[in-house]
């Protein structure tokens, strides 16, 4: 009986309490940062979007351009960022937007791999993600993506690092309070890739997640690793219905 009770507790701990109501990232930022994100001219992330547009229309290694298949204005990319990360049948695994763009580049353009977090990769990702701005996050966690989703959830509730904290302890139980001078957000990935003032640059969600792992003094999973992809999928499911705001601005 005791065993059963313990098991029930463990099962409850597996499903963390989700934040309600859902609040997007800018709600936890200062008014000037919010204004910077809302202003399409002053938002520094738009520099990457503009650069991404140039790359979109530039020929790849075999002369084919992204625009040849997808259209010059990339309107066909509308909603794509809201559906990622997703299980990609052609790759046979879970992939985020950056990984999907990379796969498309190598398959159809024969272009050399762009390193994750390189200016070009970020520019293309920002350009594509920007097309989905305002659309609600709608990822699929069923079928082949289910396994990654479960893994993401278990990573989300697992205590890690010397501070022995799990994501859920801050972002589900203590959002709205502060960590030193910094308000704790609900941890929604809707604004990424985002321009982070601390970095003085645009950066990916994986870079931000790695910073969180660093913050609790835990081993940092590599950007693009299965762990971070699974976590990203779980985060996207938590943010279901919130609008994509890429490129966001964060402090």
């Amino acid at each position: 009986m005791l065993f059963l009770a313990a098991f029930a507790c463990a099962a409850v701990a597996q499903e963390p309490k989700r934040p309600s109501p859902l609040k997007p990232g800018p709600e936890f930022q200062s008014p000037d940062v919010r204004a910077l994100q809302a202003d399409d001219f002053a938002n520094p992330g738009m520099l990457w979007v503009a650069r991404g547009g140039e790359l979109w229309r530039a020929p790849g290694a075999n002369g084919k351009r992204c625009a040849d298949c997808h259209g010059a204005d990339a309107a066909s990319m509308k909603g794509v960022a809201a559906r990622h990360p997703r299980h990609d049948p052609s790759l046979g695994r879970l992939t985020d937007l950056a990984g999907r763009i990379e796969a498309c580049r190598s398959r159809h353009q024969g272009s050399p791999d762009l390193a994750r977090e390189s200016p070009e990769a970020l520019a293309l990702e920002a350009f594509v993600a920007h097309q989905s701005r305002g659309l609600p996050v709608a990822v699929s966690t069923d079928g082949p993506a289910r396994e990654a989703y479960e893994r993401g959830r278990s990573l989300y509730v697992a205590r890690v690092g010397q501070l022995n904290l799990a994501c859920t302890h801050c972002h589900d139980e203590r959002w709205g309070r502060t960590l030193l001078a910094e308000p704790i957000s609900q941890g929604h990935p809707t604004g990424w890739p985002a321009y982070r003032l601390e970095w003085q640059s645009l950066g990916s969600l994986h870079r931000r997640l790695r910073a969180c792992f660093f913050g609790v003094r835990a081993r940092q999973p590599a950007a693009g690793s299965e762990e971070l992809l699974a976590l990203e999928l779980y985060l996207a499911d938590r943010a279901r219905g919130l609008a994509v705001e890429a490129p966001g601005v964060r402090r």
Binding site: F41, A42, P44, M46, L47, R51, Q200, S201
Partner: peptide, 9 residues
Amino acid sequence: VRLLVQHPM
């Protein structure tokens, strides 16, 4: 006049 220059500074 508004100007935004991309530069690492």
